[in-house]
Amino acid sequence: MTDAATGFSHRFRATELDARAALCEIIGTLQARGLVQEQIGAVEIALAEVINNIVEHAYAGTAPGDIVVDVAFREAILKLTTTDGGKPLPDGRLPEGRPADVTGAVDDLPEGGFGWFMIRTLARDISYARENDRNRLELTFDVVPAVDRH
């Protein structure tokens, strides 16, 4: 059963500064709920990349709309669901997220393209759907020990 008391939701405008504030608030709440630091780090990295992608790509060339992040705990799983009203992902599906090639000369090193690889590596599961003209992305993470539930 989903423990409604421990879930929470956050809605904010898709700008870099609002994204930073929202991420800090969500991560702060997870810390307050007793998630261990290593897991917090993984969640923060992955969620930051998801949100940055929405800000930079989904809403590219349009006025920044909203982003909603729903956080839910279920047994030893943390589920983050983001929705936004921006453009769909290219080809309507999750990018492959191959690792960036860092073996070349310094001048050829990538300065981007790390995001989806990190998201895919850090999350246990990831799924994407386009529903009612909104993008819906679900990320799950294993969390151990169980989050303190009050």
Binding site: G41, E44, I45, P99, A100, V102, F117, T121
Partner: peptide
């Protein structure tokens, strides 16, 4: 720790 994780994940 989190910064270190990003560098290792990306092989940087």
């Amino acid at each position: 720790p989190t910064v270190d994780k990003v560098f290792r994940l990306t092989r940087m």
